[in-house]
């Protein structure tokens, strides 16, 4: 079953950057924001909501078509697989991606999301989710029942297991 990353609840982002650090930590073995494949951005300071810039897992990815050496191939579930070895660092993919989800690393290789989902494990506010899609990348229709209530009392309320209820003892 194919899956892809989705920015499910952008307005819930608190700007903690845990997802970006998780991505760089997992795929670049570094402690940085630089080589994260997803990008949390501010738009005029944090008076206004954050923007999460994430690969949209295109069904027909323009970055792939723009790559002159064939380093990008279609991924099952949308988006691309990236062959780092043959990437020449021309940056055509960056131009082609109007979402702004691609950049180059220090070795001039494209940094591009592979929809592994590690970032979702480090999102404390349900901003990022992995969703099931068709192998082609097309969205799947799975739910036909009324939309679930996500209010604080509902069984599907946000981060139920997070932020435990027990108070730290004797601390202000």
């Amino acid at each position: 079953m194919a899956k892809r990353l989705k920015v499910a609840n952008p307005a819930r982002c608190i700007g903690c950057y845990s997802c970006m650090m998780a991505c760089a930590r997992t795929w670049y073995d570094t402690i940085s924001l630089k080589n994260s494949r997803i990008n949390i951005q501010t738009r005029g300071g944090i008076e206004t909501p954050y923007a999460a810039i994430v690969c949209h897992a295109c069904v027909d990815p323009p970055c792939m078509r723009a790559c002159p050496v064939g380093a990008l191939t279609k991924r099952k579930g949308g988006g691309v697989n990236f062959n780092k070895e043959i990437c020449k660092g021309c940056g055509n993919c960056i131009e082609a991606c109007i979402v702004g989800a691609i950049h180059l690393d220090a070795e001039n290789k494209a940094v591009i999301c592979k929809h592994c989902g590690v970032c979702t494990k480090f999102c404390p506010h349900d901003v990022l989710e992995m969703i099931e899609v068709e192998d082609s990348g097309e969205l799947k229709v799975t739910d036909t029942s009324p939309v679930e209530d996500t209010g604080p009392e509902s069984p599907t309320a946000s981060h139920k297991e997070l932020y435990g209820k027990k108070e730290a003892e004797g601390e202000e």
Partner: peptide, 18 residues
Amino acid sequence: YGKLYETIVKTGLMEKYH
């Protein structure tokens, strides 16, 4: 990192601030 992250978000140590 994982251990500290879990302690922060999954125990009650910081619930009040959240």
